[in-house]
Amino acid sequence: MAEREVLLKILDRARWAPSGDNTQPWRFEIVSGSHIAIHGFDTREWCLYDFDGRPSLIAHGALLETLRIAATGFGLEARWSVRAGCPDIAPIYDVELSEVPGLVPDPLLAHIETRVVQRRPMRTKRLSAEQRDRLLAAPGPGFQVRLFESLAGRFAVAKLLWDSAHVRLTCPEAYAVHRQIIEWGARFSKDRIPEEAVGVDPMTARLMRWVMKDWARVEFFNRYLLGTVAPRVQLDFIPAFACAAHVLLRPERPPTTLGDHVRAGVAVQRLWLTIAALGLYLQPQMTPVIFRWYAQAGRQVSVKPGIDDAVRLLARRFDAITGFGAADSYAFFCRVGHSSQPASRSTRRDLDELMVGS
């Protein structure tokens, strides 16, 4: 039985796990000295990007792996299971902790809080053989990593992201999300993405802030003033070149259960923390993956004419770049590279805001 203070310290570190747009779709409950319950939820009701709650489930997996790693710092082994009878939109994860004499802290422990998103251009310095090998091995069994390092590979991804961003920035359903997830005028944000971490220059940020107050303004700028060009150049095209590699994480078998998506999140966090341990930085590029999920399922993205056709075309182009088939599964897509420490970042809600129960 661990003391409550120890469990709180573990949770205080675990809360630094990544989640889509810093939504933190979890709450914590200390049931006993050896039992923590994680109350998960998803944002599919309001967030276009949370397709069937999959990104939230991946975030849950990242949290559970972060908690497991944090527990090793106190000589505790953490094992999780999904509580039976819970709906997929609100899963509860029961985490059982046990003391293991001589348990060595996980080598990734030191990087939980230093792991950060770098949305700005990075250096094109190539990965070393050691870095490459460790990235390929990081997710563990059941997952494969594909690297796109060549100039041609990065250019192909840049074109894909350029067109994906056009869909993202002209889709009214995506606009509704974008309005909620940015905290303007901020360097740090506890529950959103701060403006300074978005990745655009100050002038573009000021223009975006004004334009995004109203969808009619967005449509006017997009149609008559090339409103998507500056953000697409700064957020997608240039960063796609200015990196060491693009990284695709895929499960060896298509996920069919809630647990499969959660385990993908475990793999994502191990990959991300390994990247931090190697002195590298990462930017998620999940929009093409999410649009591909919509295309695979034959689901509508938008009521706006032309959006769904563009999404299906993007999915086919993505598969042409990767060499995989339309039935294959992708879990995570990102770029990595060398850079200085970002000056701005999303932080997290205080632990007491995330606690439920006694």
Score class of each variant (00 low, 15 high):
308 D>L: 10
347 T>I: 13
314 L>C: 07
329 S>A: 14
143 F>G: 04
83 R>L: 15
15 R>F: 08
17 A>T: 03
92 I>H: 09
19 S>A: 08
21 D>H: 09
110 A>M: 00
88 D>Q: 06
325 G>T: 15
306 G>Q: 04
215 W>Q: 07
334 C>F: 03
7 L>W: 06
48 L>F: 07
13 R>Q: 13
351 L>I: 10
172 P>Y: 01
272 W>M: 05
205 A>K: 04
138 A>S: 05
206 R>S: 13
312 R>S: 12
280 L>Y: 03
76 L>D: 04
202 P>Q: 12
115 R>I: 02
170 T>K: 05
3 E>Y: 03
233 V>K: 09
268 V>C: 13
219 E>G: 08
117 V>Q: 12
11 L>D: 01
85 G>N: 05
25 P>D: 13
6 V>T: 12
60 H>L: 12
132 R>Q: 15
2 A>P: 07
281 Y>N: 10
38 I>E: 11
165 A>K: 06
65 E>L: 06
132 R>C: 11
219 E>T: 13
23 T>D: 11
175 Y>V: 05
94 D>W: 06
173 E>W: 02
331 A>N: 10
185 G>E: 06
267 A>V: 03
130 E>L: 14
43 T>G: 11
339 S>W: 02
158 A>G: 01
198 V>K: 09
76 L>G: 01
200 V>A: 11
62 A>D: 07
116 V>C: 11
10 I>A: 05
357 G>A: 07
69 I>S: 00
354 L>W: 01
74 F>W: 06
244 A>S: 15
208 M>E: 07
21 D>E: 09
312 R>Q: 15
237 F>R: 09
346 S>G: 11
124 T>G: 15
276 A>D: 00
341 Q>Y: 14
104 V>Y: 04
241 F>A: 05
113 E>K: 15
183 E>Q: 08
71 A>H: 00
143 F>A: 07
302 S>N: 04
144 Q>A: 14
115 R>T: 00
178 H>T: 15
195 E>P: 06
187 R>W: 11
266 V>Q: 09
305 P>Y: 03
190 K>L: 14
112 I>Y: 01
